[in-house]
Amino acid sequence: MIKLGQNQDDLADEIKALSGINFSACFHCRTCTNACPFLEGMDYAPNKIIRLIQFGQEETALKSSTIWVCVGCNTCSSCCPMAIDIPAIMDGLRHKAIEKGIKIAEPDILSFHTEVLNTVKKYGRTHKLEIMMRYKLKKLDLLSDMGMGLNMLKKRKLDLTPSKVKDKKAIEKIFKDR
């Protein structure tokens, strides 16, 4: 078990509590990193994120792009010899970063998640067209991907009207105490 740094215990314990994962067992074999399909889009490799927390480098981990680029595909956790749930750690760190008001390294990804949840809040289900429109508006970027969007419309891959849950109250209840 590796223990270094001052804040280490605090953040490490919080992330452990949030994710329920004991990542102290990580011995940095890099299996996760070698397996990750999105390594190129990350500033720190997945095992390095674990290393940062082990070393008490809280800020750096929370500011990383890695925690946002990770899609939770579980490719890494399926082959980790220590059965460490790496995406759950990333989840914990993302929540922490939002809670602490840290500058988000990948605002587009956060904005996308927010738009998805907005439609779920409204309809109980996602509505792709609205998600994309609002996401693009926020980015002030309506033109990129336009051709693809139109093609999807033509192929009826984007429904104009959302599919909705009838029991609106139940959905409100889910979103109320967040």
Partner: peptide, 15 residues
Amino acid sequence: NCCGSSSAHSINHSI
């Protein structure tokens, strides 16, 4: 209703 997919998981535990 929607299962929450990656988005709920990413930003809101309770949801």
